[in-house]
Design a protein around this nucleic acid. Structure first.
Lengths: 196, 196
DNA sequence: CTGAGATGTAAGCCTCCGCTTACATCACCG
DNA sequence: CGGTGATGTAAGCGGAGGCTTACATCTCAG
């Protein structure tokens, strides 16, 4: 940061690609797909616009790369019982604005026109369904998982795009506790097996 | 429908405005703000594009009118106990694609840049907070209402933009029952303050 | 009937944005 | 060194989309 004087950084394709990727991730989650321009991305990355196309081909392809990079980590390798809690914790973590996760919220927002993003969304949904579905033996387990998913998505929307108070500033732990308790009603095992 | 032959309908400014409004409402909820063009709107309304500007001034102003028209009806005049159930019922109703409600989902999707839409979202949030907050006496009532709001928003997103199955085709009654049961955990009245 | 305002239309202006091209500059290998 | 491929840059093309303008046509009051 403080050493930002040098006119020419040393040439380094992979660093440039990384900068573009990071800038794209941030901007897509801040503004959604349509409202971020390739010029914005290049500017934030401190890079010429043409390089974006050299390295990623297309705005849409770049979006896909961001999306894929991100979603790989999402389900993670947590045991099923903890996937929910960890997903929530991640989503509620304060450094959201640093744009770690949540690009997939951008995908959601601009959804409908992009088949590849659709595929990723679908995959993500299936991953969650598989993992969370194992937590309940209700016959409508898949539906219940969708409801859980809906809640997580809604929380993300309200936090990152609406920035609704008191949600944004609330203690993540408290929020997680409330949500998990309510969710346990949905994902309980046959009789009352709430686990917090 | 069958009498669609006549080349020139009788001139009628208010009918034209209404047609534009309806077309705008449908398209905004189908595609979100950014991805619908004024030409699309005018075409669907069967009207010359310039009229949109004559009657509404600006694409954004038209959006605001749609939003305002819509949100007026949202909270409605139901007793507090039923606001939730009715909101859910509306959101889950099959004729969603007919684009009755849900323009505010478009507002959510394209959010961040538009102060007037922000205001409407905020207002909507406050309305719900007031009404639903009266259902619980927990000290963090506002937060709990936000969580409920988040769930409703998420359900709308998953249904209308992601079109997630089995959520979309599920029996609305069953969905509502599940959701309301879980929500009641959030909005319960005091006694028994179990927290895990 | 007629003139004037209301309503509708065709055409196009202008800016933004995705993307390309032609070229300059660097870094590394012989 | 020198020269060749990799990296970076400036400029601009082409089309889309918001908005305007100039004009045609209707309709209704007087």
């Amino acid at each position: 940061m403080t050493s930002e004087a040098p006119e020419h950084r040393r040439r380094d394709a992979s660093a440039t690609k990384a900068a573009l990727l990071r800038a794209a991730q941030e901007l897509f989650t801040e503004r959604g797909y349509e409202r971020t321009t390739v010029r914005d991305i290049a500017d934030r990355a401190g890079v010429n616009q043409a390089l974006l196309f050299r390295y990623f081909g297309t705005k849409e392809e770049l979006f896909h790369v961001v999306l894929a990079t991100e979603s790989r980590v999402l389900i993670a390798e947590s045991p099923a019982e903890q996937v929910l809690a960890r997903t929530l914790a991640k989503m509620l973590s304060r450094d959201m604005d640093a744009a770690q996760d949540g690009v997939w919220l951008a995908a959601l927002r601009s959804s409908g026109h992009d088949s590849a993003a659709d595929a990723i969304r679908k995959q993500l949904g299936e991953d969650y369904t598989r993992v969370l579905g194992s937590l309940t033996d209700a016959e409508d387990a898949d539906l219940r998982v969708d409801l859980v998913l809906a809640w997580i998505v809604g929380l993300g929307m309200l936090r990152t795009v609406v920035r609704k108070e008191p949600l944004v500033s609330a203690d993540p732990g408290a929020v997680a506790r409330l949500v998990l308790r309510a969710m346990s009603v949905l994902l309980e095992r046959a009789e009352t097996e709430p686990d917090c």
